[in-house]
Amino acid sequence: MNILIIEDEILIQRSLKLLLEKKKHFVDTASSGREALNLIPHKSYDRIVCDLMLQDITGFDVIEGSKKYYGPEEIKKKFVIITAYSSESALQKANNYGCPIIKKPFADIQQALEAITELPNE
C-alpha cells in the first residue's frame, strides 16, 4: 500500500519507513504538517500515519486540512494516529474522528506495524 508517515523525529521517521518498505509497501515521509498537506492532494495514500505533536501544527490540524480531499469515512480508514502524548482530551478527540491511536513507544513493534498495514474491511 501507499503509506504516508508524518513524524518530525527523523530517527522514527526513517526507521518506520524502512520497516514498512521491508514489508513491500511504498512509503513517503513528511516532517511537518504543512509538508504533509502539500503531499496529500497529489497522491492517493492508503494509510497516513500521523504524529500528533508536530513542529508547526498538530496532527488534528492535518486531519482537518485533509477533509478537503477525503470524506469522514475515508478519514476513519486512512489515518492512524501515533503519539507519546496521552492526555484524556487528545484521546477523546481522536476517538471523535474514529481513527485508531497507537501509543508511542510501541509496546510491540511488530503488532503496531501490522495494525498500520491492516487492510481496511470493506
Binding site: 523525529e9 530517527l11 522514527i12 526507521s15 520497516l19 507519546a84 513507544p105
Partner: peptide, 9 residues
C-alpha cells in the same frame, strides 16, 4: 520518549 523510540525502531 521520541528520541528513545527512534533508537528502538
Amino acid at each position: 520518549s521520541n528520541p528513545l523510540f527512534g533508537i528502538q525502531l
